[in-house]
Design a protein around this nucleic acid. Structure first.
Lengths: 204, 204
DNA sequence: GCGCAAGATTGCAGCAACTGCAAGAATTGT
DNA sequence: ACAATTCTTGCAGTTGCTGCAATCTTGCGC
């Protein structure tokens, strides 16, 4: 009976898939706890496996690298931005559309504040994790640039979309850093909005 | 006699230092050749050591990671930018000063075209090298933001200098990518200048 | 020139991330 | 209940990178 309730609520996921998600969550939780307690580098994959009650080998069927545990839902975030971007009216200028898309992500961040701060803190203090996040962001830049190129019907080699994408990500990154440094007192969407405005108005 | 000539020309470096630089160069050359021939990942440090005629262990007294061979003089480049930036008149607006500083680096790049293209090509096709370069650039961003903060006498928590630094690096990166993609036909300084202008004029 | 101090190279042993492979266990549809 | 599919796991191996201690090379004062 419990089962039938769950199934009806959870949109009919098989036992397999449900277990998989549970396990993934268990690994994440165990890993983040260990990273906070002992530091990222001092925590081995074997440690995580022990804490999450799986075989060490199994870890790598859930995450490609140790770093990716910290950045678990980065990929989903990009999808979100691209979707928002594509839903913006075609007549809107590229930069305004970007600003709107990033505003929703900033709101997401703000809503999941505590979750994210734990992860960002690990990221900010662990070079290898930080490097991995930059690598993922570079992938975002490519995708965003492509999306903008298509949106604005620019020539394939026009550098403008890429510059827009790069500037937007830079604004987001600078804003996040400022948000964390100032103890996340101001609301993140406001900071991000201000950064975008500053770039829109020109830096000269 | 050859020796005495060399010494007088090379500003009197000791035998020790000269040998060190030769060896470093030998490692770099051997490594880049192997990377191009077989790919970065398929080349082991042992391979490089063998080709450069050193012990494997010695490699790591010259380069902290395998990736750093490809990015050998990245650090020197940052010094260059910061020095240029500090020599700009204090009255000049921050963005204009940044533009001038990056213009000289763009000219350097253009001058060392062939050398750099080999390295950039490896970088662009090897995720781990690319990640490492982003990591180094993040360090630049910190240094540049600090320099600008001091220059403009901004409050320590003012996000503007960081935004400027991030935007400048984004412009440089986007320009470089465009330069490479278009077969480095246009002069790099021109591309970089245009990107800076675009940001100066505003993206709105 | 000679010998001693400083610095560089090297070999060894070891750790940890990650991979391919194949055997065994669980889950699924019938 | 059985067969097919998929997932977990153990094993063995590769590679990057590190600390340490021995050995060799260079620099320098005499």
């Amino acid at each position: 009976m419990l089962k039938s309730v769950k199934i009806s609520v959870v949109a009919e996921l098989g036992l397999r898939e449900r277990k998989r998600q549970q396990r993934r969550q268990a690994i994440e939780d165990a890993a983040i706890d260990l990273f906070e307690a002992n530091g990222f580098d001092a925590t081995t994959v074997d440690d995580i496996a022990r804490a999450a009650d799986i075989a060490p080998r199994t870890f790598f069927t859930y995450f490609p690298t140790k770093e990716d545990v910290v950045l678990a839902d980065y990929a989903a975030r990009l999808d979100r931005i691209v979707t928002e971007l594509q839903q913006r009216p075609e007549t809107e200028p590229a930069w305004a559309a970007l600003q709107a898309a990033f505003a929703t992500v900033a709101a997401d961040y703000q809503a999941q504040r505590d979750q994210l701060i734990r992860r960002f803190t690990i990221m900010a203090t662990t070079p290898s994790v930080f490097a991995r996040s930059l690598q993922l962001q570079a992938g975002w830049e490519d995708t965003l640039a492509d999306t903008l190129t298509r949106r604005t019907a620019a020539e394939p080699n026009d550098p403008t979309p890429r510059l827009h994408a790069a500037a937007a990500l830079a604004a987001m990154r600078a804003s996040l850093q400022h948000w964390l440094r100032t103890g996340h007192t101001q609301p993140l969407p406001k900071i991000v909005g201000a950064a975008f405005d500053q770039l829109a108005d020109g830096l000269g």
